[in-house]
Amino acid sequence: MNKILLSLLTLLLLSCVLSAQANSISTSVPAKSKDIHNADFYYNKGVDYYAAGNQGLANLYYLKALNLDTAHKFARSNLELSQHLSTDSKLYPQRRFLVRVLMQVLDFFSVNRLAIIALLLLFCSVAALAWLLFYDPDEERALPLLVFVLLFAMCLGSFTLLGFKSYHQTHNKLAVLITATEQLMPAQGISKKSIMEVHEGLIITMITSKDGLSTVRLPNGQLGKLPTKSLAKVR
């Protein structure tokens, strides 16, 4: 039985290494190619657009970079600065200290980082389970039980967060206003009086799209409608 287990583990490790190697070979593309699904590539495009004075597309590409890698500190920093310097900077909420800390911690755990951490926690949980179950039955089990419960809770939490982040990554509803200015129309009713004027680079959440108009939520929570063609979706 031990030999079978050992063989299985060796096979797993080998497949893991080969898979990772094959992945790195097959997915490397030269830096000049177009439309590369890579956070650094999107970030560099964002920097280019910002330098060219196109704040809308710059913000869009920073968001694309962050969608792939929430821990991309350069994209985060440039996006925050761009928001800070934008005409609509006052629409972005000022978060409280602890909320900001929490957001930064969550951002640190990008999908791939979280996947690896969750996997490691799973291995540790299995090890802790073995420790707990084969612990000397005549001795106090508090320590192995505590270790197992903690690791298992962290493992469950990691996989839950991983599921949430993966879903958010593939169903990202953020969009950026790419035209110079637009009038935000009321989300409800037939009134044609605009609520306010919004400017290029504003980051919004798209809720629905119909008849060339999108219902959007501004960073401050305000709901309204904007022309769909003036919005560029992150995904």
Binding site: S28, I36, L68
Partner: peptide, 24 residues
């Protein structure tokens, strides 16, 4: 970084295509 300066471009000769580990 708010609002000191914009970070410059990153020098990359090769971009690897992003694939989430969870899809592998």
């Amino acid at each position: 970084a708010t609002p000191n300066s914009m970070n410059p471009k990153l020098s990359r000769s090769v971009y690897s295509v992003y694939t989430p580990y969870t899809s592998q």
